[in-house]
Design a binder for these strands. Structure first.
Lengths: 154, 154
DNA sequence: GAGAAAAGTTTGATTAGTCAAACACCGGCA
DNA sequence: TGCCGGTGTTTGACTAATCAAACTTTTCTC
């Protein structure tokens, strides 16, 4: 219930996003789920959840399950939206394999601006409008990717 | 002269890139130049340069000017290359204004993978092959940007 | 219901990044 | 030559992220 501290770090955004995702799968989200999802030890998960709770983004009582506040959920949804938009651009436009697209989306979602994301979205929709066969430079790009000169795997 | 510690943070990459850039303008790079370029206090610049020196990426004697080692310069050039490739994609393909392109490149350069950067590069060259007028979906995208539906400013 | 196992928390340590304030060095000028 | 101002460094403080180890609480199982 403290709210509005400086600015969230990438890690904090990852925690909120992760908790949001977990809460869509399970009835309750427990500390070990968070630790597992984020790849950290339970003690790290505990302390980070505590700082997020101090900021009013998470509701958490000792030994109880972890729940996002409305504010926390709003941020989590925002981060997830950026993530998904990025991932879909990387996969559908740049034709990256799903794993690379996912990994890069994870890393870029914290730094990209809304304006750029907006452009990415419009660009992807313009590309989709080309149909599967594609035309002009898009067809050329697809062919390049499918053949030699372009890296395919990480 | 310690070398090969874990992995560089985004901040460390920014310091190396900044020092590299500064050393292209000036005869020598001094602590205050670095502090000014990175927007931190001189004391912060000093301590960060010291940790980079411990890792063998910077050569620095107390009160002397700051110089990148070969290893440090190699990393700086790598970061700068990522930065420039990203910036040029954002500006030339997504048609973002120079300031936004620069800012986003600064933030994304640390997280993007080599594979994705490679795709970006090929994509941009395919687009360039379309000529200024553009064709098909590319022309449509350009028109969209120039008119209503797409955010133009930050 | 008692004890063991699992889950969660605390404590103490480390690395990174940052600042303000105090302190040290060095070069120019009077 | 001496000292003053700018430059650089240290010190002390803080936030964030992380772990391992010790400890506490809850939950399960017999």
């Amino acid at each position: 219930m403290d709210e509005s501290s400086p600015r969230l770090t990438a890690t904090m955004e990852d925690y909120l996003e992760g908790i949001f995702l977990l809460s869509r799968d399970r009835r309750v989200v427990r500390m070990r789920d968070i630790a597992g999802h984020l790849g950290v030890t339970p003690s790290t998960a505990t302390t980070t959840v505590q700082t997020l709770a101090k900021r009013g983004l998470i509701a958490h009582e000792k030994y109880e399950d972890v729940v996002l506040t409305d504010q926390g959920r709003a941020i989590a949804e925002e981060v997830l939206r950026r993530h998904e938009e990025l991932r879909s651009f990387l996969e559908e436009v740049l034709l990256l394999d799903p794993d690379t697209a996912e990994e890069d989306a994870c890393r870029l979602e914290h730094g990209i601006s809304e304006v750029t994301l907006d452009r990415l979205r419009h660009f992807a929709s313009a590309i989709r409008g080309c149909g599967n066969a594609g035309a002009g430079c898009m067809r050329r790009f697809r062919q390049q990717v499918q053949t030699a000169g372009v890296t395919m795997e990480p």
